[in-house]
Amino acid sequence: MASKISGGAVLRAAARIIVLLFFLFPIFWVFLMSFQTNQQILRIPPSIFFTPTLENYTALFSGRLQTASGSLDIAFIKNLLNSIILSSCSVLIALILGVPAAYAFARFKFRLGENIAFTLLSFRFAPPLLVLVPLVAYFQMIGLSDTYIGLIWVYQLICLPLILWIVRGYFEDISPDIEHAYRVDGHSWAKTFFKIAIPLARPGIAAAALLSFIFAWNNFVFALILASADKQPVTVGALAFVTSAGIQYGIIAAAIVLSVTPTLLLALYAQRYLVEGLSLGAVKG
């Protein structure tokens, strides 16, 4: 029996292709740009056919950028290292603080508990600029300005609410009776937390950590205002490629490809956990 393809199905397929192109084409184009010289990128009309070059990547790794007005030092690898330090340490500290807090919010009902949890979440809603101006002043006063510790502290505004809310949903999903059984079997409260609650919530903790890492990695504005050149992550470091000799599109594209790669690989590796984490934690009321 011959199958019929309806007009609606064709339209749906066309809509899917348009949406895919809309989101993926810029990424694809940036990827192509990273293998082109500035002249190839700026030619009119643009073309997807070109002779690829690795000079953008070479410049990033060597730290020397040749421009029309001369040679320029760039600190991309340092920026990459900063991104790794800031994101990893921020997530680590957010996990140390956020997981026990999430457990407490999930298991114990206490006065103002919901209000405190919501206040922490509201840090995600507030525009960063709202807190940045006073933070600059405070950080200069207490000597945290332009330090890793200061930046990691501020990054908790990004990481802590995410971890708290996603992991809380996971803990709420685990029957407290499993922990009760462990306690009746002769173990302390602390041991129950570390040996039962945390291992059972591990997928949620992993998802929350990954999401936090991605959000921290992609942050721009905190580091732009609070860090000088030697503490800046890749998102801010890319600004250095806007030079007096013009905008270095090829190098910017290569920097984007390199800076996106770790988070993209992490996201692809842990896609299942991310979906679970969002559906069980963040969406749950």
């Binding site: 059984a181 306690r183 039962i196």
Partner: peptide, 20 residues
């Protein structure tokens, strides 16, 4: 007294077996 030191054993309605 903490549950661990009460000298009680319990079977739970929701089973509460250790999954791993």
């Amino acid at each position: 007294t903490a549950p661990a030191r009460r000298g009680v054993a319990m079977a739970f309605e929701g089973y509460a077996l250790y999954p791993p």
